[in-house]
Design a protein around this nucleic acid. Structure first.
Length: 442
RNA sequence: GCGAUCGUAGCUCAGUUGGUUAGAGCGCUGGUUUGUGGUACCAGAGGUCGGGGGUUCAAGACCCCUCGAUCGCCCCA
């Protein structure tokens, strides 16, 4: 008989469990809380879109469209793509639902995205992002709002340490085009020193030479023409307004004139929060203004700005998952229906008080304690029977109460112990806070 | 798409220049001891050494292919 081969997971996907999952959930929960503080509305969007949503919005970035999207034909012969980003889908929803009527819109989403790439540190084929966008707002205050929110989010996650906000402007269309032309001619004059990769970039995506990692390119890139020399008065004022807004809000930033975007629809502000703690994938949150995108999708020229951040990367940077909930295990030491029913009632009250709790009553007594210890619960409550038929109720505390949550256990069982067993709340208070054993008379 | 490193039990790994029947810790199962403080004891189950092919008297080890993982390059919406 042939052995059944267990199917393997799809490359670049992950199964999250335990601490990994808790970190992930913490990032999402924090984002959901913070985005509300700034008045961003939530969105739920399809994971699949017509391929045109992305191929049209991404425009000339042929590598990205042809090689790095998960696309397939459905049974009707339509080309469908698993969303590789949020922005294009949001723009499509904005247009097809007539959301112009609500402009300017502050929107947020999170969920899975798919890119057919080689997995590496902090980079998966199915990955997850949080995303925030402001559509229909042309003023620099929108950029500032988004950045202030991002800054607060990173601070609340406790990962702002070692993370810096790098900021640049790509100018408006005229500025950007003039700068790009100057760069092409400059790099053409220095072909001899450019790396092989950068010679290819010169044809396809010259701006990208500026942030090349190749040491050969560094010198030329550093001396390359600067956007500042090509900025129109309007573009210059816009950027000044953004930086002034950040300063006023107390958000630290550094100028990175080499920070660029590969796609043509980006204008003005480009930014990345960067860390040195994630190897080659240093960007923790990135975005910019994409005033040209909605036109690419057939809409009226609509200003928009937004950012996205990889949840996995944020989760990796998390130092802890926040304030832990105190937990309890009830060990019923011997098999007894009466003890089990007492345990059940205690468990219910403890849970109702918001403290996770479970009963352990399988295996020999030693195993029960081993299991309770292994669960790492903060309190182990024991139930046994004394020789005289009364119950012995023990409380063992496994942790120092750094978070002042001792009260919960006390409150959960206070009246139960008093009403059913006549235990005085004072005696119970001592035991629940310091540990010890109580005799429960029926 | 390219490069480097790696793949042995459920997990983390050992396994010498190729040489008897592939090991340990943890976990798991059963039991013993003990009214429980992260350290008891005994026993047991569990491995096509990622997969395929080759070299050899002999391959977990060497060679080729393949799949996967990790890290980097390209790309990064």
């Amino acid at each position: 008989m042939a052995k059944i081969q267990t199917p393997q997971p799809v490359r670049g996907t992950q199964d999250m469990f335990g601490e990994t999952e808790e970190r992930f959930a913490h990032v999402v929960a924090t984002f959901e809380r913070v985005r509300r503080l700034y008045g961003f509305k939530g969105l739920q969007l399809p994971v699949i879109e017509p391929t045109a949503v992305f191929s049209r919005s991404l425009g000339e970035a042929t590598d990205v469209v042809s090689k790095e999207m998960y696309s397939f034909e459905d049974r009707g012969g339509d080309s469908i793509t698993l969303r590789p980003e949020f922005t294009a889908g949001i723009a499509r929803a904005y247009l097809t639902n007539g959301w112009q009527q609500y402009a300017p819109m502050k929107l947020s989403v999170h969920g899975p995205l798919f890119r057919y790439e080689r997995p590496q540190k902090g980079r998966y084929r199915q990955f997850h992002q949080i995303d925030a966008e402001i559509i229909g707002a042309a003023e620099p205050a929108a950029d500032v709002e988004l950045l202030v929110m991002a800054d607060q989010l990173l601070k609340e996650l406790g990962i702002d340490d070692g993370v810096t906000l790098q900021l640049n402007t790509l100018g408006d269309t005229q500025s950007r085009d003039a700068w790009r032309a100057a760069l092409v001619s400059y790099f053409n004059d220095h072909r001899d020193v450019l790396s092989e990769d950068s010679l290819a970039r010169l044809e396809k995506n010259p701006l990208r030479i500026l942030d090349s990692k190749d040491p050969d390119d560094r010198g030329v890139a550093y001396a390359a023409p600067k956007i500042d020399d090509f900025l129109s008065a309007e573009a210059s004022d816009f950027f000044a307004a953004v930086t002034a807004g950040l300063d006023a809000a107390g958000v630290a930033w550094t100028r990175n004139a080499a920070l660029v975007r590969g796609l043509d629809y980006y204008r003005h502000t480009a930014f990345e929060f960067v860390t040195d703690r994630l190897g080659a994938q240093g960007t923790v949150l990135g975005g910019g203004r994409y005033d040209g995108l909605i036109e690419n999708l057939g809409g009226l020229a609509t200003p928009a700005v937004g950012w996205a951040a990889g949840i996995e990367r944020l989760a990796m940077l998390l130092n802890g998952v926040g304030k832990p909930l105190r937990t309890a295990s009830i060990v019923v030491e011997i098999d007894s229906d009466k003890l089990f029913s007492v345990a059940k009632q205690m468990e219910k009250r403890i849970r109702k008080e918001g403290m996770p709790c479970g009963i352990i009553s399988e295996g020999n007594p030693k195993k029960r304690f081993d299991r309770a210890k292994k669960l790492g619960t903060d309190y182990i409550l024991t139930l046994n029977e004394n020789a005289d038929g009364s119950f012995a109720f023990g409380v063992k505390r496994n942790v120092l109460d750094r978070y002042k949550t001792t009260g919960r256990l006390n409150v959960a069982l206070k009246f139960y112990l008093r009403d059913v067993f006549g235990v005085s709340p004072t005696d119970w208070r001592v035991v629940s806070h310091g540990g010890g054993t109580l005799k429960l008379d029926k």
